[in-house]
Write a protein that binds this DNA or RNA. Sequence first.
DNA 1: AAATCGGGGAC
DNA 2: GTCCCAGATTT
Length: 360
Amino acid sequence: MQKTRKKYFRDQLMAWFAQNHRPLPWKGEKAPYLVWLSEVILQQTRVEQGLPYFERFRQRYPTVQQLAEAPEDEVMKLWEGLGYYSRARNLHAAARHIARKLGGRFPDTYEGIRQLKGVGSYTAAAIASFAFGLPYAVVDGNVFRVLSRFFGMETPIDTTAGKKAFAELAQELLDPAQPGPYNQAIMDFGATQCTPKSPGCSSCPLHSDCTAYREKKVEALPVKSKKAQKRERFFHYLVVRHQGKALLNKRTEKDIWQNLYEFPLLELPRFSRHEADVRNSELWRQLFDGQEAVIHRISRPYQQQLTHQKILASFWEVGLPAEAVLNSGPFLAIDQKKLGEFAFPRVINRYLNEAQLTLF
DNA sequence: AAATCGGGGAC
DNA sequence: GTCCCAGATTT
């Protein structure tokens, strides 16, 4: 590849950036903690979706020390609804590591930053360049798209070889004199000009030398080799309320929604609305053990799409005679009024919002 | 190398 | 419905 083409790409990109950058709260931010916070929130997350969460976290935890001191349930509650909850767990763990083991000093080298839980090559490069001005090129979804198109690279981006090739090219293109602005530029360009669907090629200042544009392959790039498979799961939640209390379970297994809360869950191989399927379960026996429990209502089915799973959930509202003694077993019996303090998956919050008027 | 981890918005 | 987003971690 000729040097001139790379120089052309870099120069045109920076010229575009001078006219088009999006003003965002973390732009030009130099405090490593806030750069880190914004980057973790934005992993696999659109700017518009992450922005309110960034403001919330920045307000609640202005410093890494304050984040480190927060209870984990509180951090999870603040993250509620954003998805990929391991990000919140890792963010919190890393904050405690910085506060306790690093004396509150944020690491200031790429390798040091990369060691933090939840920080991979992208996030380490972003923090290194934005907060410390270090010459590391970011490679995110935008960069894959922009480079694959402009340079006509058909290597699948979801392979080891593909990731390596794009990372090397990105690093060669980086302007070492201004790594931060360059990284901002290529991501802004990908997000607003060189978009996945119907990109603005006609008004693009780089189209005259863009391989994909010349060969009419823009919509076909980047190439991905794998496609996600989905499995269906059928959740039957027992909404048990008794004497002002409700039962909750904390999800601790290696599964979706780790460290979020839910009602006692009966997962079945298929979706059921038959009382017998629920009454004959081990969970039912464990909870009520021969007592006269009444199923007051079965909610409508609630569906939730995840990347690799489709969840179908129903909520079985169960009551006991006033004098009955509830055997909570491994579950938490919490005040119904405090339900709002716990972090739930979206599918449960959707149910709670609809049932709220009649139930809680 | 492949699988898995959410939720939402654009189409 | 499909795609994909300022990706990382586990197996």
